[in-house]
Write a protein that binds this DNA or RNA. Structure first.
Lengths: 227, 227
DNA sequence: CACCTGACTTTACGTAGTAAGTCTAGGATG
DNA sequence: CATCCTAGACTTACTACGTAAAGTCAGGTG
């Protein structure tokens, strides 16, 4: 490897950055550490992301927002098992609209959970990537197929996306470290105490809520007051 | 105000920190700037938050997670109008369970939207504050009153919280600055193009999705496949 | 009056992002 | 072959950040 070709690329940089984030947390992702991981000086990264760290952040968000990529490569948790499906499934037979939405939701959730350390980066970035548009297209087509009137489709898609992202964050929050002095569960919260023994299976809860939301979104509407 | 009593307090520090976050963004909240805003040296803050900035962050999250506080003080957007309700409403007549949930959701959403710059701080902090427990108590009681079997109550509450937080983030994301090179809306996304003229009223969309979710959560359940 | 304590300040250090400059290899040009 | 150019990688240097440690100082207490 000659001096000035370390084989850097955006893809490789983002993958390495995500490995650092997943392993040590977002705060630990520094240009110097990233450079070290890539066997390169920190400033070399600026050649591929001339706008600096913010641009790198955006690339990371774009990466994890695309389940196809985020679920494929960067987690070598288990040894690469030989897949039952040999390669690209030749003819993905058309699934019903609700199954397509459920599948998307599960994939997106898995991608976000896998890289939950990068979640704070998503909040203030507009989802105007190709992956985001692909997801919206899937949502709109499915809800249209479900029989929603056009003017209700974008709202339904927004609700679905909101729920999935919110569920991921809810899970991540609940699994976070306890704060320095957590509030005590005492008599002020009788119902919580009564139900505190029920343990949560995040996967199950997610799917139940998802079913409820989809059912509510595609059922005949009831008007409610303005509050 | 003598030299060594600038009248600092956790409350005042957090309020000022939130003003900085709301006005200039989370990245701009530095100890020095916060000290300046409080007419104090940066290190003075460490007297009230000895564990440093992380502890300050936690206090900020606790603050905005309590709609009663977050919606009250720190936004002097409009001049303080004389309220129609004179003081603490003397006897808050009991509202039906669904109205209580809807009211909570709207208040929580408003609090988060008002301080959306602080949202990234929430993601990895466990919601174990008094305000969070109060909210959970409200949820559990309401869903129990709605007739949900006890084992489904925590899941329903989680779904509701997920939706509200997700909806706020969805809105904030959609209002963020466009990325450096946004994806083009071309023929690959026909349904999106067809519906792109529909403009979104975030408040309305939020309430519609909320109604759908509540309806789905409290309606008789239908089992779906494992995906 | 001496002393203490709590509230803020001063000084200083290590690390962060990154602007600006330097260096090297390899191709283009004469 | 000698020279120059350029893109990419590396170095230096600057500013700003979080915060440890020590200092300062008013007001209360004995």
């Amino acid at each position: 490897m000659s001096r000035n070709n370390a084989g850097l690329s955006r893809e490789r940089i983002v993958a390495e950055a995500l490995r650092i984030i997943d392993g040590m947390g977002l705060r630990s992702l520094t240009m110097r550490r990233l450079g070290d991981a890539l066997n390169v000086e920190a400033m070399a990264i600026y050649h591929h992301f001339p706008l600096g760290k913010e641009q790198l952040y955006s690339a990371i968000v774009e990466y994890i927002s695309d389940p196809a990529r985020a679920l494929a490569s960067p987690a070598a948790e288990t040894a690469p098992e030989d897949e039952a499906t040999p390669e690209t499934d030749p003819e993905p037979e058309p699934r019903p609209w609700d199954q397509r939405l459920r599948d998307w939701a599960c994939d997106y959730r898995a991608a976000l959970l896998r890289h939950s350390g990068a979640l704070p980066l998503m909040i203030h970035r507009r989802p105007d990537t190709v992956a985001a548009l692909r997801a919206t297209e899937l949502h709109y087509a499915a809800f249209t197929e479900a029989g929603l009137p056009p003017e209700e489709v974008p709202g339904a898609a927004a609700a679905l996306t909101s729920y999935v992202l919110g569920a991921v964050i809810h899970q991540v929050r609940s699994e976070g470290l306890p704060s320095s002095d957590p509030a005590v569960l005492d008599g002020r919260f009788p119902t919580v105490m009564a139900l505190s023994s029920i343990d949560v299976d995040h996967d199950r809860v997610f799917r139940t809520g998802l079913d409820a939301l989809l059912a509510g979104l595609t059922a005949p509407r009831v008007q409610h007051g303005e509050r």
